[in-house]
């Protein structure tokens, strides 16, 4: 077994690549609420290589959105440990985002310019008081050029690129005049207007219908090939992951419990949670009339702390005396340099 564990208790396996755009190490994020401390992220580590799409999957409350928001420094929680190294590809310098001031000039320079984000709700993430064109121009004027006419031209260009039928007219429309799919296209246009190094897409298609979703995914794939942006794709839909991503990180209760290439996740998953998740989705043409496999129980209350492996109360393969007492370390799966799992079954 190739246990490439790098010492210390929170030992984190490094998948080394010089080509990383972002390297998150041992990120810890806490929320202090009236009801107690919510430990949203308990040591999350991952990296996104240049030009790749990393899927982050998990059930609601597992911390996948907060991971994305932490990279943007938009989270309302407190980052209390770890680092987020971001490498700007044109300059080649690596910056630790956690050390930047939230509203300081460096962070404001990165946000929207080098890293941008698409949110789940296309209805609420566009400002209803400004035209779509205005909102795209805002980012361009802030980061790229001072020339208003030039900004307008670029805004129309990018709207054309995301497949808007009549970009001039759309640029002069207000969000309420557009359908859900169109608004999400406008969001994508805005996010890509400064050709970011990293795009964080937080459930970009969850609110959309299946035909619109397919079109948006198709568009994102095309643009990704064309611009070469790395994408962190947050979703809970395993179908979307299979169609979009190169690599996958599966999260459970603020930890990454398995990381692998897309093929390994679907054809050779290791962690009992990943396996159960895959078995609980209805698959076309398979086992109709038979029971779906479900994971017993529910995700624990965020205020409580679970000893040992966070998944052990729901795990069908839990080992009494071990899984409920000791937190498993993240280790490489035997014979692989890309597939890591956090489970006692493989240590």
């Amino acid at each position: 077994m190739t246990n490439a564990v790098t010492g210390a208790e929170t030992s984190n396996v490094q998948i080394v690549s010089e080509d990383d755009v972002v390297r998150v190490q041992d990120l810890k994020l806490n929320f202090y609420t009236a009801l107690g401390v919510v430990r949203a992220l308990n040591g999350v580590s991952f990296n996104i290589p240049r030009g790749k799409v990393l899927g982050v999957v998990g059930e609601s409350g597992c911390g996948k959105s907060q991971t994305g928001l932490s990279i943007m420094q938009l989270t309302t929680g407190r980052i209390e440990g770890g680092s987020i190294l971001f490498r700007e590809f044109n300059t080649g310098e690596a910056i630790d985002i956690t050390r930047l001031e939230k509203n300081g000039p460096e962070m404001r320079h990165i946000r929207g310019n080098n890293i941008s984000m698409i949110f789940q709700e296309p209805m609420t993430s566009l400002n209803p008081c400004y035209t779509v064109g205005n909102q795209i121009e805002e980012a361009i004027l802030l980061h790229q050029t001072q020339d208003k006419a030039e900004a307008r031209k670029r805004a129309v260009d990018i709207l054309q690129k995301v497949g808007m039928p009549n970009p001039e007219r759309i640029a002069d429309s207000y969000p309420h005049q557009l359908s859900g799919g169109m608004r999400q296209r406008a969001m994508i246009a805005m996010a890509l207007s400064c050709t970011p190094t990293l795009l964080i897409a937080d459930e970009p298609t969850t609110a959309l219908d299946v035909t619109t979703e397919a079109q948006i995914l198709d568009l994102m794939r095309d643009l990704q090939n064309e611009i070469g942006t790395s994408i962190m794709f947050i979703t809970h839909n395993m179908g979307v992951v299979a169609q979009m991503c190169d690599e996958v990180a599966v999260m459970y209760l603020g930890r990454i419990i398995e990381r692998a290439t897309i093929d390994d996740i679907f054809y050779d998953p290791k962690h009992p949670y990943t396996i159960s998740l895959l078995r609980s989705i209805p698959r076309l043409g398979v086992a109709r009339g038979e029971k779906l496999e479900s994971i017993k129980g529910t995700v624990p209350d965020p205020y409580s702390t679970v000893t040992g492996c966070p998944f052990h109360p729901r795990c069908p393969a839990a080992i009494p005396g071990l899984c409920d007492a000791v937190m498993p370390d993240e280790t490489f799966v035997a014979g692989s340099r890309t597939h890591t799992v956090r489970c006692h079954l493989y240590t």
């Binding site: 397919a214 179908g239 299979a242 169609q243 679907f266």
Partner: peptide, 22 residues
């Protein structure tokens, strides 16, 4: 509609049937 379902199989990436307009 059927072509647009995201299939949970990375070895079978599909492109949706083009449905112009809304």
């Amino acid at each position: 509609l059927l072509a647009a379902i995201p299939k949970p199989d990375p070895r079978r990436r599909t492109r949706p049937v083009k449905l112009p307009g809304d």
